[in-house]
Nucleic acid binder design. Structure first.
Lengths: 218, 218
DNA sequence: ACCTGAACACCGTTCAAGT
DNA sequence: ACCTGAACACCGTTCAAGT
């Protein structure tokens, strides 16, 4: 550590994640982070080209936190369930950082460990590399989307409960959106964890059904 | 229109969307937008409480662009396919605005039209309000996730092709991540449109499978 | 190579003042 | 009610200078 300040990239990124957790993504400024680390703002640019590079490093830290199950006897479905649960846990533990994970794919060795574990389970089960890639893409889409919904509290207030300012008057609502009135209020009652599992099962069941039909036609 | 400037909320939000399309979400500033509209920056605050309120209005404009199929003879699966395709088209047409749709749910009458159409198709097919809500949630998650992947070009470069600066040396990669090396290069070759359909079919096939098993056990 | 302070070109929003 | 200019408290990053 030949630096005068003792800073490492990892330490800077780790402090950045802590700041993001506390004050949100917009709350992380190069100036505030430098202040928290006790250095001048411009010192950070010795370790990262710009703010985006720093955020990319934060994303890698998050990916590295995802548990990759090592059990050799697990089938691809169960292994994927375990990985996806770990993905969800990491994302909801760091809600403000979800956009970073959505923007920067895993790149470092540690960050790619869970990807490797997932691919391995699929390939061992005789699923083609191509189908493995497709399933991985669909699962990434689902996990990013569901995490986004959770951290944004997208369904926290159902549509009929919009602020009265410019909201639609009740009779008009009932005439044009009867099903929204019926179904909408159920959305905020859904449990995030239960629905995460439900959507995951939809995807896995669909994948296995398509796999079976493909194998059956061979 | 009793205003001196002739501004309406709709016109302001519409210009904001155009600016977002041209210069990105961070490229939309209250000052630049006001300049483009020929008014003082603070005039915008007559129509919107703050920048977030303006962005919420932009999200409503986008939701209103989603086509809601009116055919009464369509089954829920086909109707959902059509709606989801329209959702994808709107989102990829406005890539920089995707985070807004992820943050602000539909609220206005026009914005809720596609939701009403989807709910209606499900309810008409005898699916419970609860299952309709669950399926809607899963479909929102998938569409937001897949749009995020597309607009961020999440899979544009596969992991093995990271910049040589801090990338992992080849032998280490091959030893620790053999499946990433095999499967990763396939990801950027996948077609966004084809994979959108694939993931959607996974979800729909899974939903129908669970529906059937639920009905069968009654 | 690493670190710094000053400066530049921006932000969103508050405030007091105008019509 | 609607609109404005000035001001405040911030930003990320460039630059020239230091070690």
């Amino acid at each position: 550590m030949p630096n005068r300040t003792g800073l490492t990239e990892r330490a800077v990124a780790s402090h950045a994640l802590a700041l993001i957790d506390e004050e949100g993504l917009v709350g992380l400024s190069m100036r505030k982070l430098a202040g928290a680390l006790g250095v001048a703002p411009m010192s950070l640019y010795t370790h990262f080209a710009d703010r985006d590079s720093l955020l990319e490093a934060v994303a890698q830290l998050l990916y590295a936190q995802i548990d990759a199950p090592t059990g050799e006897d697990l089938g691809p479905e169960e292994k994927v369930r375990q990985i996806m649960k770990s993905v969800r846990r990491v994302l909801v533990d760091h809600p403000a950082a979800v956009p970073l994970v959505a923007k920067y794919p895993p790149r470092t060795l540690d960050a790619l460990a869970f990807v490797e574990a997932g691919y391995r389970a699929f390939r061992r089960a005789g699923i083609t590399a191509h189908d493995t890639a497709r399933a991985y893409r669909a699962l990434v889409a689902y996990s990013l989307g569901t995490a986004t919904i959770e951290v944004n509290q997208y369904f926290a207030a159902h549509p009929a409960a919009t602020p009265p300012g410019d909201s639609i008057d009740s009779p008009t609502l009932a005439r044009h959106l009867p099903n929204v009135i019926e179904v909408g209020p159920l959305l905020p009652q859904l449990d995030d964890g239960v629905e995460f599992d439900y959507g995951l099962e939809l995807t896995l069941a669909g994948f296995m059904r398509l796999q079976d039909s493909t194998l059956g036609s061979r």
